[in-house]
């Protein structure tokens, strides 16, 4: 089988699942909103409601949070042809019986950590004992490992999107994403869905304290 798949390539497994991924607070919810506005069906259970950290909602499926531990992952198939949000840490636990088009959000790590720290404060949680310096190192290694994994996985296609670029030039980013996903999305509506006011933890502001 291995020999045959090497010889003839991998057979497609139905419509691909569109995954929006990245570190938490890297713009994944904004990307979900863009894709929804562009015409894609979004898979969400609405369980995690909008709050001060995500005023426009989280676009999550609660069950995905258990992806690491759950053995029955067949529900992911329901997302074929739709969009599902899966944070970067859980990508490696996605079942291999689907094809994935992964839109991977990248954001300055200082901004990510500043935003995560604010969110932890709002939630009155500590988030472990590692300081920002250690977490930066961990996240850098984690992101590198995702890139290595992406090269190995035949059923993954990954497009990296920078959060600051999406906010600055939604039109270009919408065009890029539309090309990546087959060209059927409404680019104008996608770029309209970008709300620059939600880009609150900017590195220039963080540096000024």
């Amino acid at each position: 089988m291995d020999f045959l798949s090497r010889l003839f390539g991998r057979a497609p497994q139905g419509e691909p699942v569109v995954i929006v991924s990245g570190l938490p607070r890297s713009g994944t919810s904004m990307m979900m909103k863009m894709l929804e506005a562009g015409g894609l069906s979004v898979l969400t259970d609405g369980e995690r409601v909008a709050d001060v950290d995500n005023p426009k909602g989280y676009y999550e499926v609660e069950r995905v949070k258990n992806l690491e531990k759950e053995t029955d992952k067949s529900y992911v198939r329901e997302a074929r042809g739709k969009v599902l949000k899966v944070i970067s840490f859980l990508l490696k636990f996605l079942p291999d019986d689907n094809d994935y088009r992964i839109i991977f959000m990248r954001r300055d790590l200082n901004e990510v950590l500043a935003s995560q720290n604010k969110m932890l404060k709002h939630r009155q949680e500590t988030g472990g004992t590692a300081d920002d310096k250690a977490m930066t190192e961990h996240y850098l290694n984690h992101l590198a490992s995702i890139r290595v994994m992406a090269r190995k996985k035949e059923n993954w296609q990954v497009l990296e999107v920078r959060y600051d670029e999406a906010v600055k030039d939604g039109k270009s980013v919408a065009k890029q994403i539309n090309q990546f996903l087959g060209g059927k999305l409404d680019e104008a509506k996608m770029s309209e869905a970008v709300d620059a006011e939600l880009y609150r933890n900017r590195k220039d502001k963080i540096a000024k304290g």
Partner: peptide, 9 residues
């Protein structure tokens, strides 16, 4: 460490 952070979030 990442797991602890993500759980908190």
């Amino acid at each position: 460490d990442i797991r602890a952070k993500l759980k908190g979030l």
